[in-house]
Amino acid sequence: MRERYASGITDDTAEKMVDLLNSNLANLIDLSMDSKQCHWNLQGTGFIGVHQLLDDTYERLTEAYDTVAERIVILGGKANGISKRVVEDSVLETYPTDITEVDQHVRELTNRYKKIAEELRKAIDTAGEAGDEDTADLFTEVSRIIDKDAWFIGANAPKK
């Protein structure tokens, strides 16, 4: 590990948090790429509204994973955001490339947001139990963003 800029936590805790942060970094980068896949390929009723919404959600995702990566460095680690690591470490399955309709993409992307929200909640608990409240707070902040964007995206799904 490199020099740490966060004090008040042990080296062991810092290392555990770096691993936890890196796994969530992979998830967030993967989700951002999935949102772009959706953005580029959706068609049908409601296209323009969802297309524009995904520009906004992508921007929030990139800000979120940038903050996660910065926390990794603050804790003395190295952020691993290279594509091979993202593929290896993300909890998400490969985004389907055979869908085009807005409602299909909205359902798929909303489910992916919910999966990442679930992982973030686990990370909040893990960081809190480890005594790193700053990292837990960061995960809480990101979780709020993911929940809100899941709602924004999911609200575009046709009612059953």
Rank of each mutant, 00 (worst) to 15 (best):
D66L: 10
T67M: 04
V68I: 15
A69P: 10
A69H: 10
E70T: 11
R71K: 14
R71Y: 06
R71S: 04
I72T: 06
I72H: 07
I72C: 03
V73Y: 06
V73I: 14
I74F: 10
I74N: 05
I74P: 02
L75E: 00
K78C: 08
A79D: 10
A79E: 07
A79N: 09
A79P: 00
I82D: 00
I82Q: 11
S83K: 01
S83W: 02
K84H: 13
K84N: 11
R85C: 01
V87R: 06
E88K: 07
D89N: 08
S90T: 14
V91T: 10
L92R: 02
L92V: 02
E93W: 02
T94G: 07
T94P: 01
Y95R: 07
Y95E: 09
P96F: 06
P96Y: 05
T97L: 02
D98M: 02
I99K: 03
T100C: 10
E101P: 00
V102W: 03
D103M: 04
D103H: 07
Q104A: 08
H105C: 13
H105L: 06
H105I: 06
H105M: 05
H105N: 15
V106T: 12
R107V: 08
E108L: 12
E108I: 00
E108S: 13
E108Y: 06
T110P: 04
N111Q: 14
N111R: 13
N111V: 03
R112K: 13
R112E: 06
Y113V: 02
Y113K: 10
Y113I: 11
K114G: 01
K114F: 03
K115E: 13
K115R: 14
K115Q: 11
I116P: 02
I116R: 06
I116G: 01
I116N: 05
A117L: 08
A117M: 00
E119G: 01
